[in-house]
Design a protein around this nucleic acid. Structure first.
Lengths: 188, 188, 188, 188
DNA sequence: CATGAATGAGCTTTCATTCAT
DNA sequence: TATGAATGAAAGCTCATTCAT
């Protein structure tokens, strides 16, 4: 019988990679990286332990894969004509829909685990934030827009962490409103 | 040799417990809970591995011990006559001098799902914060003091995490000033 | 496309087998049997892993194939009119040009206890040597030619192993000369 | 209760180390390094897998331990007043009583396993042999004693390997006699 | 005949915990 | 009370082998 075509193989590969990164993200954010075993990732992905090593050289590479997935997804926002409102919308969208990933990244950035890719990513994001917010805040009249950008970052990071940790009690909607107000954004 | 008195034994016990929790706190905040072995704690404490199990039933109990240490230490602040200024001073003191512990607790609250004591502690702290700040903020004229208390918590948590993660870039002093100003506190 | 003829298929088969045994021999002697993976053999042979199992039932069978290749190659020498000089020439030719195979075989005969075919082959070779050398040595006047045959084998095995292990220091040419002299062979 | 004394601990340690190196030597020479698992070593030593790692950092370190054991054992021979007879006696003693270790070392020196300690040891032994034999052979009248030393080494290595491989057929006693005769040693 | 994704047993190693002294 | 040797479950990873196409 003829072997599978390249397209077939590629489709299988992509499907498997999807399953791996998907399960890994779930588990890493649920239980942390250290508390998640490769066996568990495999189990949740519905594949064998060994297969993971067909795609990633190590558990750490799986993590990198997960992060890369997000990295390649983000550049859309940094565009012309973006406003502070867009940026905040974007942030709250993430909080509301990708909280798992956010949790995982926060968890990593606190774990001092000698993972260059994580530190890099976190630094990159922090700097990116400042560089994105500063001109937008200047545009709407802040006198020291860079300091205000750090203030905004502080608020957003605080929002993220409290959303994760005190999910039930935290009045996310009210905070959101207060933050939007600070920047004169009127959400009906 | 004359047998030691009960007091002497008790003093030895307390000393040993001190050494264990002290080393554990250091290591947990340096390397994380999972990355710290019981052997390392013992080594840094200058005692044997076995002795730890004379005082704690498990590594997790050691962690509880560390947390309890902080728990029992905090109630001093919640006193009569305390002002919002005192509370913020207290918080920034912690950020500046106990960042290791803060980091450890944040790390735990993100990482570990199966550690009731940690979640409890984190919740307790969050609630305590709200309950402490609310009346203080009311006193200085905030209309919706509870919402403002959450806003303040958001700011403080954000400050903590950015201090930990972006230590070199984060303009802590400027943030501090902005926060104090918000609450009309004039630090010369 | 016209279906290939049986001869064509057979030629393809032979070609594939060749590539497999060739790569396997190379790798086994470079890195040892245990340190060589089936994947590597396939890669060096330029075929897929699975195809190897079309020709051999297991990695061990591949090894057998390699050995068989040598087995079937040797009988030429044991001919009429052969002299001790021919036999030694043959041996040193092997040392000088097939050291990889020699090394592999030695390695196996020392390493592996559960590979009947290897032990068999080694025994066979040893016995073959004795049976080949004995009459030749008798012809040139040795009183106890069988003992001398063992002595010669000892010398040759020692030469082989030292050539492999102390390649840089071992004075192979001098040893060769001494051995030829012992049997009154005058190589100008 | 008082903890065990230092002497008691040391005795336990020595006993365990003995058991580990003993089992390891046995298994490595029976089945080769790669074919022996740490679990097997532990089982034969009558201890747990984990305990081995209390004494050695890795399986490779266990091997080093085994080799070191022999290394430290050998220097006795290289003494004043030693004769070629003593040296040969020593060698055959080894062949007759330590064949397991010899087999293991030969196996390693053939396995190209990137084990510096093994290669070092083998080289050391080879050179040591030449340097030991050369003056002894000069003393008994050999014209080119260094070349003869290599010839002798060749004979001894050949003897070793044939003893290992063709144990049942190899006429060790006869070879021994022939070798002694070559050096004018008269063993009644 | 040929492919390579997928499996799972087995390997080395780590480490919280136990226990005889 | 104090010690550290000893245990064993579980982790990350490798690789010979299978199988749908």
């Amino acid at each position: 019988m003829a072997p599978r075509s390249d397209e077939q193989f590629e489709a299988m590969r992509q499907n498997t990679i999807q399953r791996i990164t998907h399960s890994a993200l779930q588990l890493f954010s649920e239980k942390g990286y250290k508390n998640t075993s490769v066996a568990e990732i495999a189990k949740r992905a519905g594949i064998s332990k060994g297969l993971i090593y067909n795609y990633y050289d190590s558990k750490e590479e799986v993590l990198k894969g997960v992060i890369e997935g997000f990295r390649s997804m983000k550049d859309e926002i940094v565009q012309e004509g973006v406003t502070i409102e867009n940026a905040l919308d974007q942030f709250f969208m993430m909080i509301e829909h990708q909280i798992g990933f956010v949790k995982m990244m926060m968890s990593f950035s606190l774990d001092v685990n000698e993972m260059p890719i994580v530190e890099e990513f976190v630094h990159e994001k922090a700097e990116e934030g400042i560089q994105l917010y500063t001109p937008l805040l200047e545009k709407i009249g802040f006198e020291d827009p860079e300091t205000e950008a750090w203030f905004l970052s502080t608020l957003l990071q605080g929002t993220a962490i409290l959303t994760i940790v005190s999910h039930e009690d935290y009045p996310l909607e009210k905070m959101k409103k207060k933050i939007y107000q600070r920047y004169k954004i009127n959400k009906a």
